Simulated scan of single mutants.
Amino acid sequence: MAMKTLGRRRQSVAAAAPEADENRWIEIAGLHKVYRPRKSEPTHALSAIDFAARRGEFISVVGPSGCGKTTLLKILAGLVPKTEGTVRVAGRDVEGPLPEVGMVFQAATLLPWRTILQNVMVPAEIQRLDKTVYRDRAGDLLQMVGLGGFEDKYPDELSGGMQQRAGICRALVHDPAVLLMDEPFGALDAMTREYMNVELLRIWRESGKTVVLVTHSIPEAVFLSDRVVVLSPRPGRIAEVIDIDLERPRDLSVMASDRAGVYVERIRKYFHAHSVID
């Protein structure tokens, strides 16, 4: 089925820089972020972040509220400037938004006056890509996430989970090298969230993208990830990077397994140590 090559094409709009290292597809070195408001004291959000992710890896970032998780994601997306350090994606320095990056936000933020297909096409339109080619790609993506037949529906005609799937398609339509996700399922009920976790793994597997997910759910991070990055309280530092050695493909039974439980407790100890829980 053509879906499985959707994100693995060598000739991509978001082609990597020639010097891109697939073992350091995302590279962060000496990253600091300090917010300096005009009328209040500076806030040191992130401190001395050093990390690298391989191409095609699934990374989750967890940590207590206010530790800089979303700030880290926004710096990777080029939406927030760093204060100090180096940030590279697919061999390119991140100094602003890059076509190599797609982002899924906490809410689907679909435009209510546009159909689902038209919403998915927004990044292609902004980047002035070939409408015919990318309309076909948008249709393929909607088929991949189970929204075939909903192309002409409007956002208010879809459930919350369906809207988030459309949001994922929108982030993937321009074929980015990296998909960033900021707590995308936090507003969903428990059953829909579990279903979306399984769907996300399938989408990741079929698209071949590198994913960085921010989540407050430790079990979710363990279930989805190759590695979990644990941040300390503000200013956010890397407390530990944990390899998740669970076989793939994974189904929901993995969440209840003893092996997954060991990882969950290992991560949770950082929250208990600072009297905060996810």
Rank of each mutant, 00 (worst) to 15 (best):
R38I: 13
K39E: 15
S40L: 13
S40N: 07
S40F: 12
S40E: 13
P42Y: 10
P42T: 10
T43K: 08
H44A: 11
H44N: 04
A45R: 01
A45C: 02
S47H: 06
A48H: 14
I49M: 03
I49A: 00
I49N: 00
I49H: 02
D50K: 04
D50P: 05
F51Y: 14
F51Q: 01
A52P: 01
A52N: 13
A53G: 14
R54C: 12
R55F: 11
R55V: 10
G56R: 13
G56E: 07
G56N: 10
I59V: 15
I59W: 08
I59A: 12
I59P: 11
S60N: 13
V61E: 01
V61A: 02
V61R: 00
V62K: 07
V62Y: 09
V62Q: 07
G63S: 05
P64W: 06
S65T: 10
S65Y: 11
S65A: 12
G66Q: 00
G66C: 00
C67K: 00
C67P: 01
G68K: 00
K69V: 03
T70Y: 00
T70E: 00
T71M: 03
T71L: 07
L72H: 04
L72N: 02
L73C: 09
L73T: 06
L73G: 01
K74N: 15
K74S: 11
L76A: 10
A77F: 02
G78S: 07
L79G: 08
P81C: 10
P81E: 15
K82F: 02
K82W: 04
E84R: 15
E84S: 12
E84G: 09
E84L: 13
E84W: 13
E84F: 06
G85I: 02
G85V: 04
T86V: 15
V87D: 05
V87E: 03
R88A: 14
R88D: 06
A90V: 11
A90P: 07
A90Q: 04
G91I: 05
R92Y: 12
D93V: 11
D93R: 13
V94Y: 05
V94G: 03
V94C: 08
E95A: 14
E95L: 13
G96A: 14
P97I: 02
L98D: 12
L98W: 08
L98M: 09
P99A: 11
E100K: 14
E100V: 09
E100L: 11
V101L: 11
V101D: 00
V101S: 09
V101H: 08
V101I: 11
M103G: 09
M103H: 07
M103Y: 12
F105G: 00
A107V: 02
A107N: 15
A107S: 13
A108W: 03
A108L: 00
T109Q: 14
T109S: 15
L110I: 09
L110S: 06
L110G: 03
L111C: 09
L111W: 14
P112C: 04
P112V: 09
W113E: 01
W113H: 12
